[in-house]
């Protein structure tokens, strides 16, 4: 691993220069989104938080939405990461997984900061956020980042050989978004679907994050085991597939 190259790529990802936007938006955008969501869900839909979590809906949403955004954006933006760096890959021998890793780290750092800003604003606005559990929340975010690295390696490599995969990954991510209790609460589901949702590794993660930061509690159940299995399998699979395919990227770019 070439750390100076990684650092350099990470700086590019964070500075957002290649996207032509200023770093100020890193903090502004999540706060604007927060304003939109709190208006829509508290004024229009009058959404309710499930019983047991004594909090407003907006903080309930925020604790799931920002980590999800980091995860989803990492995977989706990495679909094209190899093609974006085709000029480099064709002419310079580099470890190509560095590009993927730098992008995931960049996205998680940006969204992590946005997440903190949102929690801070909500906390100031009177929501009770259990700040003492922040270190555990950060560990949870790191685990999520690892899962994102796995999916990103997998899809970015396959995308080079089979470009049409990106048309499947995008709807799949949308499906995963709606099957994760981010906008809704599991208790709103009919009985028979409640156990199905647990099969989604993200469902446990979002639930765990909320319980931790709002109630200070921690529950293991089947979903947690599934999350851990996914956390172990997906990065391994992604790494294996990426390294099988990456020597051949140049042939397909």
């Amino acid at each position: 691993m070439n750390f100076s190259f990684f650092n350099q790529q990470l700086q590019r990802e964070i500075s957002g220069k290649h996207r032509g936007s200023s770093p100020l938006w890193i903090l502004l955008q999540p706060l604007l989104l927060l304003a939109v969501y709190s208006f829509v869900f508290t004024q229009i839909f009058q959404a309710r938080v499930p019983a047991g979590l004594d909090s407003g809906f907006v903080i309930y949403l925020a604790l799931g939405y920002w980590p999800w955004s980091a995860f989803s954006e990492s995977v989706l933006r990495n679909l094209s990461v190899i093609n974006e760096h085709a000029a480099l890959i064709r002419k310079v021998a580099i470890r190509r997984d560095t590009l993927v890793l730098a992008r995931v780290c960049g996205v998680f750092i940006l969204h992590g900061l946005g997440f903190l800003a949102v929690l801070l604003v909500l906390s100031i606005a009177g929501q009770s956020v259990l700040w003492q559990f922040l270190p555990v929340a950060i560990v949870l975010l790191l685990l999520l980042a690892l899962l994102a690295v796995g999916f990103s390696l997998l899809f970015s490599a396959v995308q080079v050989i089979v470009p049409s995969i990106s048309h499947m990954v995008q709807p799949a991510m949308l499906l995963m978004f709606f099957s994760t209790p981010i906008l809704w609460a599991p208790s709103m589901l009919p009985e028979q679907y409640q156990s199905v949702v647990q099969l989604n590794p993200m469902a446990w993660w979002v639930g765990a994050m909320r319980e931790l930061m709002l109630a200070g509690s921690w529950h293991w159940h089947l979903g947690g085991i599934i999350f851990l299995v996914a956390l172990f399998m997906v990065p391994l699979l992604g790494y294996w597939v990426f390294h099988r395919l990456s020597p051949h990227f140049e042939d397909y770019l």
Binding site: L88, K91, V92
Partner: peptide, 10 residues
């Protein structure tokens, strides 16, 4: 390596 034009510039 300086391969063709560009040398891998962004």
């Amino acid at each position: 390596a300086l391969l063709e034009l560009g040398a891998g510039f962004q």
